[in-house]
């Protein structure tokens, strides 16, 4: 059993409404530092909304209202004075399908550093190479960095998106069902990367694949109908769930 670790992200009384419809109801949970936390639950349970709160992408939805706090390194993301680009820079995002930016492989990875002021050619080259290696893509693309990112296979695109997210130097990786569009080999590749990165990054992965959560998670959050039902170290939640809904989900009665 993993030793109790420090908290990286602290969610307090977080509620989200879309045009009056509740999507998250009063969620409070501490996400441990440099561990893989899996957010589990059936479709529509609010797990994606939860993830989108962590980097405030939830803001981009029309008619959304959020209450509560998300503290990262002690700073409240939803504080009206909080500066959102600086918050988002701390977090890399992997979405369900890879969305490479409409530019070359190189420029995809260099995009973030450039935005944050890096313009030195040599530095950029080094950053791009380093992060493509980190994402396990370098050997496959080193000869064609100027090719459009869309020329890659979908599995390669997802690793490119990982490299792109890592290149801004985040502390946290947010992943929303990052393997759901991928073939099994590419999925295993991404999961393998997560395992390698877990010592350096706090990883929050939303998934509905129970076996994936079992393979990866150190800590588990189980949600149902917008509510946080249960959370705890993975071994506890999987082997001795306290709540009936968690038990039913894990045993496959509900999915």
């Amino acid at each position: 059993m993993p030793e109790p670790s420090t908290t990286h992200i602290s969610v307090r009384n977080l509620s989200v409404h879309y045009g009056g419809q509740p999507a998250l109801k009063n969620v409070s949970v501490n996400i441990p530092d440099r561990k893989i936390t899996a957010v589990l639950g059936p479709s529509g349970c609010g797990k994606t909304t939860f993830l989108r709160c962590l980097n405030r992408l939830v803001d981009t939805v029309d008619g959304v209202s959020v209450s509560g706090q998300v503290l990262v390194d002690g700073e409240d993301l939803f504080d009206p004075a909080a500066e959102v680009t600086h918050i988002r820079k701390k977090m890399g995002l992997l979405s369900q399908r890879p969305y490479p930016l409409p530019m070359s492989i190189y420029d995809n990875v260099a995009y973030g550093p450039r935005i944050h002021g890096q313009s030195d050619r040599g530095e950029l080259d080094a950053l791009v190479e380093h992060h493509l290696k980190l994402a396990g893509l370098w050997d496959e693309v080193k000869g064609r960095l100027r090719a459009p990112a869309t020329s890659l296979s979908i599995g390669q695109q997802q690793r490119l998106c990982l490299a792109r997210g890592l290149a801004v130097g985040p502390e946290i990786i947010l992943a929303d069902e990052p393997t759901s569009a991928l073939d099994p080999i590419s999925s295993a590749h991404i999961e393998g990367k997560f395992k390698e990165l877990r010592d350096q990054y706090t990883i929050v992965i939303v998934t509905h694949i129970l076996r994936q959560a079992r393979r990866l998670a150190d800590y588990v959050i189980f949600m149902y109908m917008g509510e946080l039902v249960e959370h705890g170290p993975a071994a506890e939640v999987f082997n001795a769930p306290r709540e009936k809904q968690t038990r039913e989900y894990i045993s496959g009665v509900i999915s």
Binding site: N55, L57, T60, T85, H86, R88, K89, M91, G92, L93, S95, Y99, L101, Y111, G112, I115, H116, C161, R164, G165, V168, L174
Partner: peptide, 9 residues
């Protein structure tokens, strides 16, 4: 858009 925003753009 979100991919770009999430990088801090």
């Amino acid at each position: 858009r979100e991919a770009s925003l999430s990088l801090g753009a």
